[in-house]
Design a binder for these strands. Structure first.
Length: 423
RNA sequence: GGAGGGAUGCCGGAGUGGUUGAACGGGGCGGUCUCGAAAACCGUUGUACGCUUUGCGUACCGAGGGUUCGAAUCCCUCUCCCUCCGCCA
């Protein structure tokens, strides 16, 4: 959500920032809606003020035993005006609010200009790509050949975009999740276990709603399945005032994530890259405005650490203005190398959302002994997506015989197992 | 699922139609007293929005509607919490 006062005072800067993201100008429309609303509020409140005065006159007249029927008639006629005024204000407020809710966050000044994914600058490449003296296979060929990855059976009970893992691969997935959440704790994040189903307002808060309802699953009684625990972790302090001295607050959760993938028909149809359900360790930070960019670097480092310890090659790119997500003001994507595909694939996305989500959630902070509240900044990042990391381990650690070498960092989580072979 | 009880300011807790934005107590803050502190005493202490912004106005007592000139107080709907019974991982 945007600060209406900022838009009133800097309409041109607002539109210019949106333009960098390829969005049309809206400040004029917003100011017009806002002006209408405020005019109606002034009229309404003047009305309410005189109603209140009349009511008080009635009270004092009656307490002195006088006749107040004239005053009552006056109050009665004012009442109708007040009611229509209230309706107008409500409608205008909703119109402004609905409009504002659909406008994306503004990019930070430091974000590079660009139109699409191809324009994202690569910040660094880390680790060495493995070289094989055989042709590298994709994870689904390896997994199916091992008899430990089964898409057909999953499709029979759940439809497309689900996977069944067995034996060593099921254990490997669990090991990855445990490994990652433990790293998050070491990095200073507090572990949280949250619901997987949430009310719509939580998703409005983080920005998935109202624009992206198609990407989400909704239950029959109106609850939504979380597409990421960014939603639950960020909403932990919605509608509250935090003590600034307690910031930054850093949370981590290992949860399943559910995505409808409505706009992705035909994309990544084979394998585990794009599933309706996957596990992910998410890191969320609530920081003061002064510290949020610093926290973004810190969070990205924490995510990179997972890949370093697993010895998986990756690169970090910064999203250009045209590729930035709805709620983000600045984002780093981490892409892991997949030898089977012969390309980098996104495995983490770390974003600084500024005060955009805090405003939508009405989460505020305040310095000790100060009256004035302000909006903290929220950040989120995956560290990492477990499903895609499993894919990366399988493809990077594949052996000539089709077995998978377990990364040494993971071995303790797998009872010392060094290799996943045929079942 | 059945039967009851509840939701008021930072906390506890009054308040069943008229200067109640809300008694009283606690806490916090400021002050008096003190070498200092405690105690005592005095004062003060919500949020949001709007305006012709040293001030004024409006709204808010779980949420949304209704009755009324006027609602924290009456009526309706919903949400959440608690107790008992049933069911259950």
């Amino acid at each position: 959500m945007h600060d209406i006062k900022y838009i009133r005072d800097h309409p041109d800067a607002f539109d210019a920032a949106l333009k960098r993201c390829g969005e049309p100008p809206v400040a004029g429309k917003i100011i017009q809606l806002d002006k209408k609303l405020r005019e109606e509020i002034v009229a309404l409140e003047a009305n309410q003020a005189s109603s209140n005065t009349i009511s008080q006159s009635i009270a004092s007249t009656m307490s002195q035993g006088g006749d107040a029927s004239d005053l009552k008639a006056k109050g009665s006629s004012l009442k109708k005006k007040t009611q229509t005024g209230q309706d107008q204000v409500r409608d205008s407020r909703k119109a402004l609010n609905d409009f504002l809710l659909e406008i994306r966050n503004l990019p930070h000044d430091s974000v590079p200009d660009g139109e699409e994914e191809a324009d994202n600058p690569v910040l660094r490449e880390v680790g060495e790509k493995p070289s094989f003296d055989f042709e590298a296979k994709e994870h689904f060929d390896l997994g199916e050949a091992l008899g430990l990855m089964d898409f057909e059976t999953a499709a029979r009970m759940s439809g497309a975009r689900f996977t069944i893992l067995k034996g060593g691969l099921a254990r490997l997935e669990r090991a990855l999740g445990q490994f990652m959440i433990n790293l998050a704790l070491e990095a200073g994040y507090e572990e949280v276990s949250t619901p997987s189903l949430v009310l719509g307002k939580a998703l409005y808060g983080t920005g998935q709603l109202p624009k992206f309802a198609d990407d989400l699953f909704q239950t029959e009684d109106g609850l939504w399945m979380i597409p990421t625990s960014e939603v639950t972790l960020s909403n932990l302090h919605r509608e509250t005032i935090l003590a600034e001295e307690d910031l930054p607050i850093r949370y981590a959760a290992l949860t399943p994530c559910y995505r409808a993938e409505a706009g992705s028909a035909g994309k990544d149809t084979r394998g585990m890259i794009r599933q309706h359900q996957f596990a992910k360790v998410e890191l969320v930070t609530i920081a003061t405005p002064e510290n949020s960019l610093k926290e973004l670097e810190r969070k990205t480092k924490a995510a990179e650490e997972v890949l370093k310890l697993l010895k998986l090659p990756y690169r970090v790119v910064e999203l250009c203005t045209g590729d930035l997500g709805f709620s983000a003001r600045k984002t780093y994507d981490i892409e892991v190398w997949l030898p089977g595909q012969g390309r980098y694939r996104e495995i983490s996305s770390c974003s600084d959302c500024g005060d955009f989500q805090a405003r939508r959630m009405n989460m505020r902070c305040r310095k000790k002994d100060q009256k004035q509240t302000r909006f903290p900044h929220t950040l989120n990042g995956s560290a990492l997506a477990v499903g895609r990391c499993l894919v990366a381990v399988i493809e990077n650690c594949q052996q000539a015989d089709g077995s998978i070498a377990v990364p040494s960092a993971l071995s303790p989580y797998m009872g010392g197992l060094k290799k996943i072979g045929k079942a």
